[in-house]
Write a protein that binds this DNA or RNA. Structure first.
Length: 597
RNA sequence: GGUCCGGUAGCUUAGCUGGAUAAAGCGUCGGCCUUCUAAGCCGAAUAUCGUAGGUUCGAGUCCUACCCGGACUGCCA
């Protein structure tokens, strides 16, 4: 970026005196665009500035480009810019001085583990993710949310934000009562083995008291057993039995969820994930206060026994059969008195803004698409600065087993948990590995799988493919590149080969594979910045794959061990810098960087 | 009905502010282990970028219309 700033300034200077320029042309206001060309013949950096200026300057683009090339070849610092050329319809191609290329590499080595980490900006961000209600273990369906949210939190951290991670949940309401009753029924069967039973559709035998749409998972049985072990056989006789069982279930389930998050690399406990209970917004009156405040602004009215939010007044429209657009209002509180999901989310987001966060990120599944714009307009109507809110909507995950879609339901216990998924991947990879694994492959593969595609893309998680093909999973290719370099570094150390960051002499490097690598690895910081800005972790993955691939070419073409020191040292330094880029990139993704594989 | 996402090689996808020859993995075919890890590398074949218009010096990328697939939604949350 400093190079582009420098070149931009050079270009502005050169255009200040362009012959025949119209009077209203202001070269000082120019902000030229730069890009890295795909084709290496097009130099190290290119600009389309001459093409863009053809019209305002009323001149031929090639002629403008030539003027700029001549001027810059004259004035630009030869320590940085070796040559400026005109190509094609009027592109400017810049070639960097060789020594300048390796400045970026030296910078990586100087910063080490911190390379890619921006200065603290003093700004704060809150990322809300996972947010699964405590009715059962985390499933494959929750995985994409958890991994995307965590990685975005990491990206924001690395771009200089102080990041708070928050888990928003609701442990009140009907589904939680059903959960409690499910545990109670299983407990009843334990303490009264002769209780009257019934057989559910799936074949599960439960007491008559088991609710119609009760939760059938094994974990319910486990919770019932542990309640019995801790509290004996009389728990059903308590006055507060339902609340008691609910609390037991919630705490047991949250313990499981935390274990899974931890295994996935999501920080829990002090400084990690913090929790926000939706119910607190009812207790402190924030929910009904929201309705009142919106009503004062004339944005809430009653109709058909329900409370309506006049989103139509805030710009929401639908197109009817005749192709005419008309305003559309939404229900905030149903005629049953139960709020819709959009209501509590409004005060929740207001609290996030009130807590002073500069950036508020929500990671939502596609089911929120319909409601979140209403939440945002509610927040805005109540004076919240909605520009601070960024919503990442990701498409859902379909689980495929043996070519068949697995329909998942937490109630019917037809789900695959994230733990099961990680176990399965772990096991198969271990089987197929010739060498014993030092780290756990399950979390690495699962995280990678959830991150490798654009969040906008529907994800088919094929269990057979994810496990059977796991040796070919691209995550291993990136990790393998890291392990290879680590191996070279180990051997170099044994042989007494090393380098001093300050005194590396790069002039012996010039092989195309060295140059490609040296040009690629210093863009880690800008890749991180771009991935963070677009909330697109897959951009970082694509980049790391490119780095791994460039490393392969370098590994093939440029030996280190056994070469004369003046060549071996700068090559070792280049390899070490590549290792740091891979490692720091993987760290952001929450994927391990193994030293052996 | 409405909202949103997708439609790029046989399959799964990438393509970030429009740029110079559309990229990767899997699959197929062929080649490479006496030298730093073959979980690797090299080469070959495979693409009317859903369709039709438009904007532009330039469109996979922007605009409009339409077609196909998917998700969500319709005070049942």
């Amino acid at each position: 970026s400093t190079v582009t700033d420098y070149l931009a300034q050079q270009i502005r200077a050169a255009l200040a005196s362009y012959p025949g320029a119209p009077d209203d042309f202001d070269a000082a206001a120019l902000d030229p665009e730069f890009q890295t060309p795909n084709n290496p013949e097009h130099g190290d950096l290119a600009s389309n500035v001459a093409l863009k200026l053809a019209k305002p300057l009323r001149s031929n683009p090639r002629q403008i480009a030539q003027h700029l090339a001549d001027a810059l070849n004259e004035s630009a610092d030869p320590k940085r810019i070796a040559a400026v050329e005109v190509a094609g319809p009027g592109f400017l191609n810049f070639r960097f001085a060789t020594a300048y290329l390796y400045d970026g590499v030296a910078e990586i080595l100087a910063q080490g583990d911190a390379y890619g980490r921006a200065e603290r900006t003093g700004k704060t961000a809150i990322v809300e993710y996972v947010s699964a209600n405590p009715t059962g273990p985390l499933t494959v369906g929750h995985g994409r949310n958890a991994v995307l949210g965590d990685t975005i939190a990491n990206l924001l951290d690395w771009t200089g934000y102080d990041v708070t991670r928050e888990y928003y949940f609701n442990d009140a309401g009907r589904q939680m009562r059903v959960l409690a009753q499910s545990v109670m029924a299983r407990y009843e069967a334990l303490v009264h083995p002769d209780v009257q039973t019934k057989t559910l559709e799936g074949g599960l035998v439960v007491p008559e008291s088991f609710p119609e749409d009760g939760y059938q998972g094994d974990y319910i049985q486990t919770i019932a057993e542990s309640v019995r072990a801790e509290h004996g056989d009389d728990a059903l006789d308590r006055d507060d039995a339902e609340a008691f069982f609910k609390a037991a279930a919630v705490s047991a389930i949250f313990a499981t969820i935390e274990q899974t998050m931890q295994r996935l690399g999501i920080p829990v406990g002090e400084g990690g994930m913090q929790y926000f209970n939706e119910h607190s917004l009812y207790e402190n009156g924030a929910v009904w206060d929201t309705v009142d405040r919106l009503r004062e602004k004339g944005l809430v009215y009653d109709k058909d026994g329900a409370v309506w939010f006049a989103t139509g007044k805030l710009g929401k429209v639908v197109t009817n059969d005749q192709g005419v657009t008309e305003p559309k209002d939404e229900v905030l509180v149903k005629s049953s008195g139960e709020p819709t999901y959009r209501l509590p989310d409004i005060p929740y987001h207001l609290t996030k803004l009130d807590r002073g966060f500069d950036k508020v990120v929500d990671v939502f599944g596609a089911d929120h698409i319909a409601t979140y714009p209403d939440v945002v307009s509610g927040v805005k109507a109540l004076g919240g600065d909605v520009d601070k809110i960024d919503v990442l909507i990701y498409q859902f995950v379909t689980l495929i087993r043996d070519g068949q879609e697995v329909k998942m339901s937490t109630r019917k216990a037809t789900y695959v948990t994230l733990d099961e998924l990680m176990d399965e991947v772990d096991e198969v990879v271990r089987e197929k590995s010739e060498i014993e694994l030092t780290s756990s492959a399950g979390p690495d593969v699962v995280r990678f799988f959830f991150l490798m595609l654009s969040p906008n893309t529907h994800l088919n998680f094929d269990l057979n493919q994810a496990t059977e093909a796991s040796r070919k999973n691209p995550v291993f290719k990136i990790q393998y590149a890291h392990a290879r370099i680590s191996s070279i570094l180990r051997k170099a150390k044994e042989e007494g080969l090393g380098y001093e960051v300050e005194t590396v002499d790069w002039t012996f490097l010039g092989h195309p594979s060295e140059i490609t690598l040296a040009k690629l690895i210093p863009s880690l910081p800008s890749e991180i910045a771009s991935a963070a800005e677009h909330m697109a972790p897959h951009h970082l993955i694509e980049y790391l794959r490119d780095v791994a691939s460039a490393l392969s070419a370098f590994y093939r073409d440029c030996r280190i061990l056994g070469e004369p020191d003046e060549v071996a040292q700068p090559r070792l330094a280049l390899a070490d810098a590549t290792r740091l880029v891979l490692r720091n990139g993987l760290t952001i993704l929450g994927i391990s960087a193994p030293e052996r594989m």
